[in-house]
Amino acid sequence: MTHTPLLPEHGGPDDGPAAAFDFSTNASPLGPPPALLAAVLRADRHAYPDPSYRALRRRLGDAELVLPTAGGAEGIRRLTLAALLAGRREVWVPQPGFGDYALAAQALGLAVKPYARPADIRPTAPAVVWICEPCNPTGDSIAAWPALDALVIVDRAYEPLRLEGAAPAMPPGAWQLICPNKALGLTGIRAGYAIASAADDVWAQALSLAPSWVLSSEGVAMLTHWLDDETQAWLADARATLRGWTAAQRAMLADLDWHQEASHTNFWLARPPRPDYALRLRERGIRVRDAGSFGLEGWVRVSAQPPTAQQALQQALLEIEGEDS
């Protein structure tokens, strides 16, 4: 018996020519901070990092609760397997939401339960609940989260890119998965970390499942400087710039009759006047993220990009309108 592989769909590079302007990525177009980048480039590539990452874990928080991961995707897969081995049987995932939550559960035979709002979450077996705050692909945020009878893991990859509003309080006992590379504009460095609420059975399983040297030297350098005051100040300035770029891009798309959803981040959902716009823009060297894989046919996810990219997008859209008139 053969099984059809479960393959995730992502934005970013595809197998076509490189896009001149990429509105599909939700990473910051402003990174990385110069001092952090210099540290990454100085990373010692001739020696293994400490396989237990003791100094790094102390720098990131309570060393007994910090778990280095090879980015968010590896963290999602490993924590899902750890939860299964610790007795969890259901996985609740945001809908729409990042597809890897469901794919990781399906690959292990766990029951996948989608939810649109916290009130939808009603576990019938020991469960994991994934929260993406703010959520990908919507950029939306839940005002308040109740206590949940489950292992709650909060994916905070986009928290540093929150352009408005404050982060809501999370359910008591929630884990956190932190992936700085998007906010730093260094998505090619696969490095992140989870923070457990307690050194429990899930923690023990996740620790034992980690591959040797899960982080490269570059990943260690990036995470070592993630919490530096200089890095955080740079990110605050980047958010101010992104607010201006987001407002300008939204206004431009509105003038061209795109419907746009509200968002707290530098990315948001939009509906073009016609469903073929994503393909026609790609033919012109501009990429947007088709949201069909999120179950949102006819929608795209776009991210705020610099003024030169916005001008190119506007020109391409005007050309498409001209062809259709």
Rank of each mutant, 00 (worst) to 15 (best):
P5H: 09
L6Q: 14
L7A: 10
P8E: 09
E9H: 14
G11N: 09
G12R: 08
D14M: 04
F21M: 04
F21Y: 15
F23W: 08
S24Y: 05
N26F: 12
S28M: 06
G31R: 10
P32Q: 12
P32A: 15
P32H: 10
P33R: 11
A35H: 14
A35N: 09
L36E: 10
L36M: 13
L37H: 14
A38Y: 03
R42E: 14
H46S: 13
P49R: 06
P49E: 03
D50Y: 10
P51C: 04
Y53K: 10
A63D: 15
E64N: 14
E64Q: 15
L65Q: 09
V66M: 14
L67G: 08
G71L: 06
G71Y: 02
G72A: 15
E74G: 14
T80K: 13
L81S: 11
A83N: 05
L84H: 12
L85H: 13
A86Y: 00
R88E: 01
R89L: 07
E90A: 09
E90D: 04
G99R: 14
Y101T: 02
A102R: 15
A107K: 15
L110V: 04
V112K: 12
A116P: 01
R117A: 12
P126C: 01
A127C: 05
V129A: 12
E133L: 06
P134I: 07
P134S: 04
N136H: 15
D140S: 15
S141L: 15
W145P: 10
A147Q: 12
D149N: 13
A157F: 00
Y158D: 11
P160E: 04
R162M: 11
L163P: 06
A167E: 09
P171K: 11
P171D: 00
G173D: 01
A174I: 04
Q176T: 12
N181V: 02
A183W: 10
G188W: 13
G192Y: 05
G192T: 03
A194D: 08
A198Q: 13
D200F: 09
D201P: 03
D201A: 14
W203E: 03
Q205M: 14
Q205D: 03
A206V: 04
S208E: 11
L209D: 07
L209K: 01
A210P: 03
V214L: 09
S216Y: 01
V220W: 01
L223N: 06
L223Q: 06
T231Q: 15
A233M: 07
A233Q: 11
W234V: 10
R239W: 07
R239L: 04
A240N: 10
L242N: 07
L242Y: 12
W245N: 03
A248K: 13
Q249M: 13
R250S: 03
R250M: 04
M252Y: 08
D255E: 14
D255G: 11
D257R: 15
D257S: 12
W258T: 02
H259G: 00
Q260V: 04
E261G: 04
H264Q: 12
L269D: 00
R271W: 01
R274E: 05
R274F: 02
P275E: 02
A278L: 01
R282M: 01
G285S: 05
I286Y: 05
V288T: 08
G295Q: 05
E297D: 07
Q310M: 08
Q314V: 02
E319W: 10
G322S: 11
G322L: 04
S325C: 09
